[in-house]
Design a binder for these strands. Structure first.
Lengths: 193, 193
DNA sequence: TCAGGAAGTTACAGACCGGTAACACCCTAG
DNA sequence: CTAGGGTGTTACCGGTCTGTAACTTCCTGA
């Protein structure tokens, strides 16, 4: 019998991948370690041999998700080498692809909402990773020759963050449907200054 | 002994108010009915005499929160009667006040993130209430004489939604700090068209 | 071949959760 | 005064959760 996750990888990798998927779909507090291990084709003991706790697993999942996002960023550079403006437009396009009907939004933002305890160990990791992504978008805007790069980057960040969370409240036909239009006209307006 | 919530109101009102506060601070799945009733100075049986279930309580809390927001909207009209543009600026100001350092964002958006089950009874209520708020902002923009009122309203919606969720990830010093600036220049740009 | 470590299995502890039953109390309306 | 409804109290049910213990099985590498 074949599982939804690659059967012949190591248990730790299967757990990590399955946990990412299930946390994304059902939320962190909405899925237990038993359900994760079962879906990963293994068991709870093996999970706790590889991860100190569920919180540790959560953190590793967030890091893995951020690493995936980072790889997508790398693609922008390889696809449009040197052309920072093209890379920015690629970012907009890629961002809009994340606004499909059944998306559950950004894992890090969702985790920040779910893990309300101010001293939760995942919170500092979320901030680290989000700050890094913000800095990367600022750098892209700046290298694209845009004045007020920080302001543009922050505006685009808020638009995307808002679109991803809005989708979960009112669906893909709500305000988030206009994301590309908003982002593109924003970039054009900043370039004209 | 005095409680954090008015002692001499009816149990149902105390429960509703306390639940709103605790759901906002700790999240829906982060607080149990026992904790709510204790903080409200009553007990679980009384809660279940007034609410069918925890889900029912959640829905009533969301409706109450939306009603509060609606009252704030009414204030805009009484404070700037007939002056729709001034009301729009008041909206921006009021929205920015919600971005204080320890805010936990929008209850409805947070609930949509937490309640990942697609058939959860609260989800349709969230969509109803959010749609109504969207329509109200669109009407305000339109009555303020702005062309493309829908697009401006949706952009402002996404910016605010993004700011409120961004705060929970990276804090009030992140991109959300620029919300007023973004919103005001956006309004100006739409008015100039 | 065989030793050792990784992984699977079963059972359990301890806590918390939503929700209900049964009963005692108290306050007010008639 | 008294009946009755709203409320408080205690105990409980069945389920789920994270995390651990003890033991077995299996696979690999020397």
């Amino acid at each position: 019998m074949t599982d939804n996750v690659a059967e012949r990888s190591r248990p730790r990798d299967r757990i990590l991948e399955t946990a990412q998927d299930m946390f994304h779909k059902h939320g962190i507090k909405g899925v237990g370690v038993d359900a994760i291990t079962e879906a990963a084709g293994t068991n709870k003991m093996t999970l706790y041999r590889h991860f100190e706790s569920k919180d540790d697993l959560i953190i590793e999942c967030l890091r893995a998700t951020a690493a995936k996002a980072s790889r997508i960023w790398d693609e922008f550079e390889t696809r449009h080498p040197g052309d920072k403006l093209a890379q920015l437009h690629a970012w907009v396009r890629k961002a809009s692809e994340m606004l499909s009907a059944d998306s559950r939004g950004c894992d890090m933002a969702n985790a920040a909402v779910e893990l309300s305890e101010t001293d939760h160990p995942a919170r500092r990791v979320i901030k680290e990773l989000k700050d890094a992504q913000r800095e990367r978008l600022v750098a892209l805007c700046r290298d694209a020759g845009i004045g007020q790069a920080e302001l543009l980057a922050d505006t685009l960040s808020l638009l995307l963050e808002g679109a991803r969370v809005s989708m979960q409240s009112v669906g893909a036909e709500g305000p988030s449907a206009q994301f590309v239009r908003m982002a593109e006209s924003l970039i054009a307006s900043f370039r004209a200054r």
